[in-house]
């Protein structure tokens, strides 16, 4: 599974980080960093939640 963030939409509010800190980190520079672009399957439930709850609808999962 691949995590894709639409950088035109993302506003670094870190909602995703709160849900899946294994994958998302908003750094000191106020930019979101994807820590793991191909996260393991056991994170799928969390990532689905991140997709649903990102207020900017900026996250999608491929595969």
């Amino acid at each position: 599974m691949r995590v894709v963030v639409d950088w035109n939409l993302c506003e670094s509010n870190a909602v995703c980080q709160g849900i899946a800190p294994e994958v998302f980190l908003v750094g000191e520079d106020d930019e979101l960093e994807i820590l793991d672009e191909n996260p393991p399957e056991e994170l799928r439930a969390k990532l689905d939640e991140a997709v649903r709850r990102c207020p900017k609808a900026a996250i999608s999962l491929e595969g």
């Binding site: 709850r53 207020p55 900017k56």
Partner: peptide, 16 residues
């Protein structure tokens, strides 16, 4: 996860 600020591209700019 309420919708008081909307959701998607127009999600409230002032939410934070």
């Amino acid at each position: 996860d309420h919708l008081a600020f909307g959701i998607g591209p127009h999600y409230c700019l002032g939410a934070n």
